[in-house]
Computed example of a mutant assay.
Amino acid sequence: MRELAAELLRWHAANTVYALATIVGVSGSAPRPLGATMAVDEAGNVRGSLSGGCVEGAVYELCQEVLATGAPARRTFGFSADDAFAVGLTCGGELDVFVHRVTPESYPAIEAALDIEHAAAIVRDLDTGAITTLRSRVDMEAADGAGEIVGVAMDSAVVRVGWAMLESGGSGVRVVGCADRERTVFVDSFAPPPRMIVFGATDFAVALCRVGKLLGYRVTVCEARPAFADRARLPDADEVVRDWPHRYLARTPVDARTVLCVLTHDPKFDIPVLSTALRLPVAYVGAMGSRRADRERRAQLRAAGVTESELALLHSPIGLELGGQTPEETAVAIGAEIVAVRRGGSARPLSATERPIHPEDGPHAPRRLAAG
């Protein structure tokens, strides 16, 4: 839903009533993940997508029905081998879609979930359409239940389940035993954007910032040289830090989603920062340079005490071999390698593989949770 933040906030500013369709269950191969959203306002304007075109027409009609009646609706869309004209996913998967109407009374809960400065979980009651958002600070210190609750009051058992899923980063349908009855809810957790830290404010960094933003990262550029640490040169960076790379990295929080790209191509910067980076629990560490520079750099890192197992984590020369030459083409190659590493991709052409295009995680069956 956060990918629609700008559009939804504009609708809120205009007091627009709209229907919000959300994927609450996925099985088999499907083009969009759990939590993907599509919004339709009363004038028929559409924002977002659930399937890349396969079922959008049917979901659009369902949204108009919900707008007219005010009653939430839940429907499953799957592949039909018997009827070529049936609405379904040609990729063979199955989507469970929930649609509810959003009015100005619901805006605070929606806006709390859209705020990227907070980790949040939006909880939808799949029977009534009621929504509430559980929100904590980026550092997750409030994820034990001490955070903010925005929206319709829900049973304390539902709230506890929501906090637990926010803390673990989980999303899905849950059946919760409450004081009066069982309630079926969909909890959609939103973590803060993952971080991309780029060391060296080069022309390649300028292009990589654009690719990083496209991939959903919060991008920081760290540059020790005052003449190059110029915010105006890096309009797509979220922040530009003037500091020595190893010193900045040593004091900066990172996690298992963080990617580190060393583009300085200078041993006095590269060796200290890579010696630190390769010992951190991050998703990716890459360094720019020729094959000769890479061999020399690895020798210097060994001399600095970096072990072979740590060196094995280094992606250098950085990026996939796409044959590009410009900074923009190089940035695409780096971004492609990051995606392949994070998602376990082969980095081979799809036409040369037989693997499923979309991972098949199996059905997301509701889990039953007792109150108390």
Rank of each mutant, 00 (worst) to 15 (best):
M1L: 07
R2C: 01
E3A: 02
A6H: 14
A13R: 04
N15T: 12
T22S: 08
I23K: 05
V24S: 06
V24M: 03
G25I: 09
G25F: 07
G28Y: 00
P33A: 04
D41T: 04
E42Q: 13
G44T: 07
G48A: 06
E61A: 15
L67E: 00
A71P: 12
S80P: 04
A81R: 13
A81Q: 09
G88M: 02
G88W: 11
L89R: 03
T90S: 14
G92L: 06
L95I: 13
V102G: 06
T103A: 15
E105A: 11
A109T: 13
A109S: 11
A113C: 13
I116L: 10
I116W: 12
H118G: 03
A119G: 11
A119D: 10
V123S: 01
L126K: 12
L126F: 12
T128G: 10
T128D: 05
G129A: 01
A130Y: 05
I131S: 15
I131C: 15
L134E: 14
D139L: 03
M140C: 01
M140H: 07
A143I: 10
D144L: 07
E148Q: 05
M154G: 04
D155C: 02
A157Y: 07
V158N: 01
W163Q: 02
M165E: 14
V175P: 03
G177L: 10
D180Q: 15
F186L: 14
D188K: 01
A191T: 10
M196E: 06
T202E: 02
D203Y: 07
F204N: 12
V206G: 06
A207F: 03
A207R: 03
G212H: 05
G216M: 00
R218S: 13
T220S: 15
V221I: 09
A224E: 11
R225V: 09
P226A: 13
A229T: 06
A229C: 00
D230Y: 12
R231T: 08
A232P: 14
A232E: 15
D236V: 14
D236Q: 15
D238R: 05
V240F: 02
V240I: 08
V241G: 05
V241L: 07
H246M: 09
V254N: 05
D255A: 02
T258P: 01
V259S: 02
P267G: 12
K268F: 08
F269T: 12
P272G: 03
L278M: 08
L280R: 12
A283V: 12
A283I: 13
Y284H: 08
V285M: 13
G286N: 04
S290Q: 05
A293P: 12
R295K: 09
R298N: 00
A299S: 10
A304L: 04
E308A: 00
H315C: 06
S316H: 05
G319M: 11
L320C: 08
Q325V: 05
I334S: 05
G335W: 04
G335H: 06
A336I: 02
I338W: 03
I338C: 00
I338T: 02
V341G: 05
R343I: 13
A347P: 08
S351W: 14
S351G: 11
T353H: 07
I357K: 04
H358W: 15
R367W: 09
G372I: 13
